[in-house]
Design a protein around this nucleic acid. Structure first.
Lengths: 342, 342
DNA sequence: GATGCGCGTGGGATCGCTATCATCGAGCGG
DNA sequence: CCGCTCGATGATAGCGATCCCACGCGCATC
C-alpha cells in the first residue's frame, strides 16, 4: 500500500526495489539500465517490483555516481521570437527520442557576460552537449573555454573555435528572395536588415547585395531594424516616401508586416506599387493582408539536426567538426507582383 | 595553473577549495551557502580559493545530499503559441531572481497520459514546485497524485484538488470585447471559439454569451477553431457568407487574422462591413492590416505571479490555496468600427 | 579431469555535497 | 574564578545510484 507518493515515508530507493525483487541493488541497476547480461526472468522480477513500489530512479544520484547527466543544454534568447521557439521544439523532440533531457538557459542579451552566465548554468548541470541558439556578437575567452569543454553546436552561423555549425544558409535565403524580385522585373531591390550584431542579419544583407551586384543593379543603402514589427514600420515610413522603391526584401516576416503597414499608411499599395518579401514563414504569413511572400526556414529540422550532431560527438568525441548547411525555400504569396508595364 | 576546465584533471571539488583556503570542507559549504555563522575573514578566504580554482558547486551532489533541488518546473505545450512562450519567460525571470532554476517539460498533447509523463519528468528532477501551463481536459487519478505531492500552480484556470490558480479572467476578457462591439451599435456579436477542450476557450465563450444575454441580444451559434490562423480562415469563410454578420469576437489574434483574411477574400471589408476583435495582443496585432482591436493579457506578469505563489507555498506548505485573477485590458485599434447608419 | 572462459550476480567503494553532532575558545553573570 | 551559553569551526555519516572486482556456475577445450 505504500506507493511512494502519498504517505509520509520517503520515496523508494533502489535498495527497496532490490529487497522486494529478491535480488541485489546492483542487479536492479543493471536491469533498469538495459544492460545485456541480465537474465530475462530476473529483469521481469525487477520490473514487477518497480511497478509495485512506484519506483523512479533518482537522477541526481545517478548523475553524481556516473558523472553522466543524459541532458542536453540549449542557450537561447529570452524572447518570443518565432525562430527560437520553433527550434527549441525541434531540439526537445529529437533529444527526448534519444533518451536525453533538455535544459534551456535563456539569456536576456547577447552580451558576452550574459551568454557566459547561461553557459555556466548549463555547465553546472553537467550537460553533455550544448546547442548554441544565440548569435554571438563577441566571443569572450571565457565562452571559448566553456564551449571547448563540452560538445557544442551553433545553429545560427556564429562559431567559436570548437563549435560545430548547423545553420540555414541565410545568404541563400536572401538570394532566393532578391532573385525572385528581380525576375519580376524590378529594377533593383531595397533591404530592411536585422540588427547589425546578428550574423543572420549580416548574411542576409550580404546575399542580397551579391545578387544585385551580379545582376548589375544599383545597390541602395540598407535600413536596419531590430526584428520587431515596430522597427519595420519605421523603415517602411522611410521607404514609402521614396518614389522609385518598388521592391523590398525584409529580413523577417514580422518586420515585413510593419513595412507593409507603413506603406499602406502612406497610400502605397502592396503588391501593386511595392512588392515585399520576408523571411521565416511564420504561421500568420499566409493569413495577414496581403499574404506574405517569404523564405521558409526549417527550424524544427535544424533542431533535430543539431541534436543528431551533438549525440554523434558525444559518442565519438574525436569526430571532426563539419559545418552543415540547410537550404531555405521560397514561398510565393500575394505580396509580390510583376512590375506593371508603365 | 589547473583551472578546472582545460586540463585532463577532474573538476575541483569542495575539498580542493577547502585545502586551498586552509579550512574544512564544511566551512566552505557554509560560506558558499550563505550561512550566518561564518567569520567574514574566513568567507573571504573561501571566496578567493573558489575564484582561483574556478570552482562551481556540483548541483547533483547538493541535491542528493540535501534533498532540495532549488528548481521549479513548468509543464507546457510543445507549440509556438505566443501565450505559452510569453508566460515561460515571465516564470523564468522571476524564478531566477529568487535563486531558482527552471526546468520545462513540454507535452505534445493534452492527453492525460502525456501530461502525466511531463509531470513525471519533473518529479524525477525533484522540482520543488510546478507551474501547470496546460489546460487540463481531463484530470487523471495519477495527475492528482503528482500535483498533490508538490506545490502546484495552474495558470490557465484548470485545476486539480490541490492546485492553486493564477489566471487571467478569460470571461472578463470576453465581456470586454463583446461589450465594446455592442457599444459600437452592432445588433449582436458572433464568436469564433478555441478548441472545446480548452478551459480558456470555454470561459471566453461563456463571457461572450453572458453579455449578449444581459443585453437582450440574439446569441448566434459559435464556430470552433483550433487557435491556428487556418482554422480562423475556415470560420471566416462561413461567417462572411452570412449577410447579417457585422461583428465577430474571435478567441485569439491568430485566428482573428484568419477570419479577416477570409472576409477579405469574400469581398467584405473590415471594419467597414464587419468589425473583428481578437484576444492576446501579439506583437503583430498592431501592424497587420487592419491593426487589430484585441484584449491584451499580461502573460509575463502572470508567470511572475505564479512563481511568487509557488515560493510562498514552498516556504510555508500550510498556506491555503487562494485563486488569483488577473485583469485583461482592451486595446482598441482599427478592426472595429461603429455600425453605419444605413 | 583440470583449465579456462563467459555469463549472471553480489559486495564494497565511491561520486561531492550537506546534516548532525562534537569541539573549542571567548564572553559573562554569580 | 567557575560554569554557562553562544558563536565559529571541524569530523563523521549518510544521500542513492554506478563502478570495479570477485565469485560461482556451466560448458567447451586439451
Amino acid at each position: 500500500m505504500r506507493q511512494g507518493t502519498g504517505d509520509g515515508g520517503r520515496a523508494p530507493a533502489m535498495a527497496d526495489v532490490a529487497r522486494v525483487a529478491g535480488v541485489s541493488a546492483q542487479t536492479v541497476s543493471r536491469a533498469l539500465g538495459g544492460h545485456p547480461n541480465v537474465q530475462e526472468t530476473t529483469r521481469a522480477k525487477v520490473l514487477a517490483a518497480v511497478e509495485q513500489l512506484g519506483y523512479r530512479k533518482n537522477t541526481a544520484a545517478g548523475m553524481l555516481s556516473s558523472g553522466r547527466s543524459r541532458t542536453l543544454g540549449v542557450v537561447t534568447l529570452q524572447t518570443g521570437f518565432f525562430s527560437r521557439t520553433a527550434l527549441t521544439v525541434g531540439v526537445e523532440r529529437a533529444a527526448r527520442a534519444a533518451g536525453y533531457a533538455v535544459s534551456t538557459a535563456a539569456t536576456a542579451s547577447l552580451d558576452p557576460a550574459a551568454v557566459e552566465d547561461a553557459l555556466l548554468r548549463l555547465a553546472d548541470q553537467r550537460v553533455e552537449g550544448v546547442v548554441l541558439a544565440v548569435p554571438l556578437i563577441r566571443v569572450s575567452r571565457r565562452i571559448e573555454q566553456l564551449t571547448a569543454a563540452v560538445p557544442t553546436v551553433a545553429v545560427d552561423g556564429s562559431r567559436t573555435p570548437d563549435t560545430e555549425v548547423v545553420a540555414v544558409d541565410q545568404s541563400a535565403a536572401a538570394r532566393l528572395a532578391t532573385t525572385h524580385l528581380l525576375e519580376l522585373g524590378h529594377r533593383t531591390v531595397w533591404h530592411v536588415a536585422g540588427p547589425g550584431e546578428w550574423l543572420d542579419a549580416a548574411s542576409r544583407a550580404q546575399g542580397w547585395r551579391d545578387v544585385l551586384e551580379a545582376a548589375g543593379a544599383d545597390v541602395p543603402p540598407a535600413l536596419a531594424g531590430d526584428w520587431s514589427p515596430a522597427s519595420g514600420h519605421r523603415a517602411g515610413l522611410i521607404l514609402g516616401r521614396i518614389p522609385e522603391v518598388t521592391a523590398v526584401f525584409v529580413a523577417s516576416d514580422e518586420m515585413a508586416f510593419g513595412v507593409i503597414r507603413a506603406l499602406h499608411d502612406l497610400g502605397r499599395r502592396v503588391p501593386e506599387d511595392v512588392s515585399v518579401v520576408g523571411v521565416d514563414d511564420i504561421a500568420l504569413a499566409a493569413y495577414c493582408s496581403p499574404p506574405l511572400t517569404t523564405v521558409a526556414q526549417p527550424f524544427a529540422e535544424m533542431g533535430a539536426l543539431a541534436v543528431a550532431h551533438l549525440l554523434r560527438q558525444v559518442a565519438r568525441p574525436a569526430a571532426p567538426p563539419a559545418p552543415v548547411s540547410v537550404e531555405p525555400t521560397l514561398v510565393v504569396r500575394s505580396s509580390t507582383a510583376a512590375v506593371r508595364a508603365s
